[in-house]
Write a protein that binds this DNA or RNA. Structure first.
Lengths: 217, 217
DNA sequence: CTCCGGGTCAACCATTTGGTTGATCCGGCG
DNA sequence: CGCCGGATCAACCAAATGGTTGACCCGGAG
């Protein structure tokens, strides 16, 4: 069997070195290239494709400091012709992350604290066109399907974002040109959907579920 | 010059592999041992000491899923006889993290997205008994000195952290074994120092100033 | 010793937020 | 057409939060 050629995408040199070292220990797997963010990954993919040296699997981190983030990058990659499968390898396991990645077309989702052997299995599965989910992730998804989270409306998300900046109900009302009463109504709905009963908890919960960005991010 | 012997402490196999690979590329540096958490690190240190094979520098992550966390581990290590310098290598750069680590006796603070050469320099500095701060961290500290942030007391930071998880005043009081009145007093002080006038704004401001971590991080 | 700052608490009051009920408007769907 | 859900608003009450004043204890600096 041919070598499985991999593109590593991670903004941490340390992690890239670790994956390179770990993967090169395995028979049949080799690291073809590396990239520090989504843009660079796309460039690398195209470059290698035109060289007639395409990669078989992309190993992608989700959080990348500066450039294009992992979910966006995954979606972009899946738009390419002859797009390689994208295997997500990240530290975060919020359901929002996972769902976003899967929606973007990821073919697997692993956590960085996984033992080497699990990562190897996932790479092999991805290369074979199969899906690979870390056990933790699989459990999370099952749970998600069992109790589906109520979806927030765009308006509610908008208010949630203003909420997170520290505005009062009145200030939010002014800024969105609605009455304070309406703001309160929305908030009550939001609390219900998030399973909390005050604004700070809503912010905390929404941030953890990655419905909104962390304040100041 | 003798080899600098290092103990790696990180709960992610991937990261350990990366550091091992990266460090072994450098002349004069070798990885003597690895540990997945603080407890294991202490055991390793003692074991190697009794073997007459002590390590020169500990490279320590701050966040470790299960076992003893990095700050605690650092403090414990510094209590040992002939304690080696501890160099923190982590993803997080909030004030609270940095201060806690320095207080615990860390001799350096690097970020995981640092280029290999910077990490190497930091290891050499630590081995020589010097302090090594990542440029980003140094800049952060300088900035803190330039615009004298009204210093929050440790107690205030602690309450701020609880605040950010969405707890009510009463819940915070219960959790910290103080009265609700005292919680309010602290909050008023916090609002004053941060220049805000409500709890959500305090969270937003404190997160942006990196006094605390974003909720859920 | 005295002073000061951090941490603790109480009492009080104004304002904000939380929670409920009910109502209107509008756009899409069967 | 009638129904439903999202968005809007009002009125009302209960509870939490914000803001102030004053007080006590303690440990460290002068």
């Amino acid at each position: 069997m041919n070598q499985i050629r991999i593109l590593l995408v991670d903004d941490h040199p340390v992690v890239r070195a670790g994956l390179r070292a770990m993967l090169s220990d395995f028979e049949g797997i080799s690291v073809a290239a590396e990239a520090a963010d989504g843009d660079a990954a796309l460039r690398e993919l195209k470059r290698l494709q035109t060289l007639g040296d395409p990669v078989d699997v992309v190993l992608m981190d989700l959080q990348m400091g500066a450039g294009m983030d992992g979910v966006t990058a995954t979606a972009q990659i899946r738009l390419l012709e002859a797009a390689p499968p994208v295997l997500i390898l990240t530290t975060y396991d919020t359901d929002a992350d996972i769902l976003a990645a899967v929606e973007a077309g990821a073919s697997g989702y692993m956590l960085k604290d996984a033992p080497p052997e699990q990562i190897r299995q996932a790479v092999l599965a991805a290369a074979a066109g199969q899906t690979a989910l870390a056990p933790k992730i699989a459990a999370l998804l099952m749970n998600r399907i069992a109790n589906p989270a109520p979806a927030l409306t765009p308006r509610e998300i908008q208010l949630l974002e203003l909420l997170a900046t520290g505005l009062s109900n009145r200030a939010i009302a002014k800024k969105t040109f609605i009455s304070e009463a309406t703001v309160k109504t929305h908030l009550v709905h939001i609390y219900g959907k998030l399973g909390v009963d005050n604004r700070t908890a809503a912010i905390s919960e929404a941030t953890q579920r990655r419905i909104i960005r962390a304040p100041g991010q």
